[in-house]
Computed example of a mutant assay.
Amino acid sequence: MKIKEADFECNLCKNDKLDGGFHGATYAQTIGKTEDFVGSELVEYSITVTREPWARQESRGHREVLRSRGKAVAQIGKTSLRDELVILPGAAMSASDVLRALRKYIEEVERSGMYVGRYKDAIIVEKIDGSLEAV
């Protein structure tokens, strides 16, 4: 039996795949901003795009805009990511692929900032100096 690429590979672009969600298992690489230890654990993951307005309120962008305007900011949920970074490499990614992707991401954040959410209809980008910009 001849195996075709379509039998086991998904050739959709990342954004098209994300709309349908990502589900699977991988070794998650984790580190907190104050930790020197990087952990690795086999995890099942399910990432789903949401358009729910309540979800925006948990994003960093929404929280930081409220804070900058002197408004109350709700506590981050106990099971939510707070100051941890989780990297979920795809099954086809090698260690060098992960490094290459992280370097591209670092360059993009240094150059343009990091998309951190929405506040009302504005897209919020945080620059590395901590400033917020609505785009």
Rank of each mutant, 00 (worst) to 15 (best):
D121W: 02
R118F: 12
I3N: 07
R63Q: 13
V49N: 11
E110I: 02
G24H: 07
A74N: 11
L85I: 08
L132E: 04
E35A: 05
T34K: 06
E44G: 14
G117C: 03
D19N: 08
E133C: 13
D97A: 11
N11A: 07
L99Q: 10
T48Q: 12
C13M: 09
T30E: 03
L85S: 02
T79H: 11
Y27C: 13
R60S: 05
A6W: 06
E41W: 01
L132T: 05
G77K: 10
G70I: 03
V109Y: 02
K127L: 08
R82Y: 00
Q57Y: 10
E52D: 15
K4A: 13
K120S: 08
E108R: 07
D36P: 00
M114G: 00
R82P: 00
G130D: 08
Y105I: 04
G117F: 00
L66E: 11
E52R: 07
R82A: 03
E58A: 11
P53E: 13
V38F: 01
H62A: 05
A28W: 00
L102C: 04
G130V: 10
V73I: 06
S94L: 06
R56P: 00
A101R: 01
A55T: 15
L42S: 06
Q57T: 15
L81V: 07
K14F: 15
D129C: 14
E126P: 01
G113Y: 00
V49H: 10
G90K: 10
E84L: 03
S94W: 03
T26G: 03
H23S: 14
Q75I: 02
A74H: 07
A72C: 05
S96G: 13
I3Y: 09
A6N: 13
S40C: 06
S96L: 11
P53N: 12
L85E: 00
R100C: 13
S80I: 03
D7C: 03
S40Y: 01
R103C: 08
E44S: 13
K104W: 05
A92K: 15
L42I: 14
D83V: 01
Y45R: 04
T50Q: 10
E5L: 12
K33W: 12
L85W: 02
